[in-house]
Simulated assay, not measured.
Amino acid sequence: MTTQDDGAAIEPVVIPRLSDGVVTLRGIELSDAEQIVAICQDRQAQRWLPDLPNPYTLHDAESYIQEIVLPGWQKGERHSFAVIKEGQDDYLGSVDVHLIRGSIAEIGVNIGPGARGTGVALRAVQLIIDYAFNGLNLKHLYWRAEVPNWASRKLAWKAGFRFEAELRAFADNRGESVDMWLLSLAHNEPRDPQQAWTGPQQRETQS
């Protein structure tokens, strides 16, 4: 048992292991730190995830695990998972449910370049959607993607998220105001595309 800064006891958290037989979600561990560095230094990650330090170091990865991932589970505010192949343990990326409030939350995804275009991202998203709705009893999930991150938007679309709005100057990317797409999925809606795809037709690499 650990304690908070105010001395209050924190019960240890049991992180579930989720699998569809091909992809598995498990807890993020300190042993994943080097792979986290490699993925977070990737050009696409740096482009679309502005909260990532640049350069992204081993210290950053260890701080992320110890100061964001573990407290997120302990406080119930963010449930973060490592994505691996079933029967293997190589860290391929992460998915999470964050900003948990009431019966709603947001989904976050960061899949490394080695697993993009293989179907791993979609399977990981489908697993965490099922966990959010059936494990956490949430009712609505939201997905934000910076314009024009079509790979992220298409991944959300494949998982059943419905496009809601384009929000002008809604977020900040390294000092610059950027537009954001907002998509949503309700617990009783299909987990496959609900609308026709309106984006580019070229192959997307995120899924």
Rank of each mutant, 00 (worst) to 15 (best):
V147S: 08
F163A: 02
E164L: 06
G27H: 04
V109L: 05
A38E: 15
E146D: 09
L52V: 14
T57G: 14
Q206D: 13
R78G: 00
V22D: 11
I111H: 06
A151T: 03
V13D: 06
D179I: 07
N149H: 10
I10S: 10
G87P: 09
R123N: 10
N137A: 14
S80V: 08
A61G: 06
A8T: 15
A124I: 05
L138P: 05
Q35T: 11
I10E: 08
W157L: 00
P55S: 14
V95K: 04
T205H: 14
R101F: 13
I65C: 09
S184C: 05
G199N: 02
W157C: 05
G76V: 12
R162W: 00
Q41L: 01
I28Y: 01
Q41A: 14
R101H: 12
V147T: 07
E176D: 14
L136D: 06
W157N: 01
L92K: 08
I28L: 13
Y142S: 06
W197S: 04
R116K: 08
L52Y: 06
I68G: 00
V22W: 02
Y142Q: 11
A151N: 15
K85N: 14
V178Y: 11
A196Q: 08
V37N: 10
Q195H: 00
L58M: 10
L99S: 12
L70V: 14
E62C: 12
L30V: 11
E62L: 11
D96L: 06
P193G: 02
A115Q: 14
V69H: 02
E176F: 07
L92I: 09
A121I: 03
K154R: 15
R123Q: 15
Q206A: 15
F133V: 01
S103Y: 10
R26S: 11
G7D: 02
A186T: 03
L30W: 06
N110S: 07
Q195F: 07
Q195D: 13
A9Q: 12
Q35Y: 09
Q66D: 12
L52W: 02
D20S: 09
A82N: 00
L70T: 10
K85S: 07
Y91R: 04
S80A: 14
F133G: 04
R116Y: 08
T118N: 10
D192Q: 12
E67R: 15
D32C: 07
K75T: 10
A186W: 00
N110C: 13
Q74G: 06
A9W: 07
A196K: 08
Q35S: 10
G27L: 03
A121G: 12
S177N: 09
D20I: 11
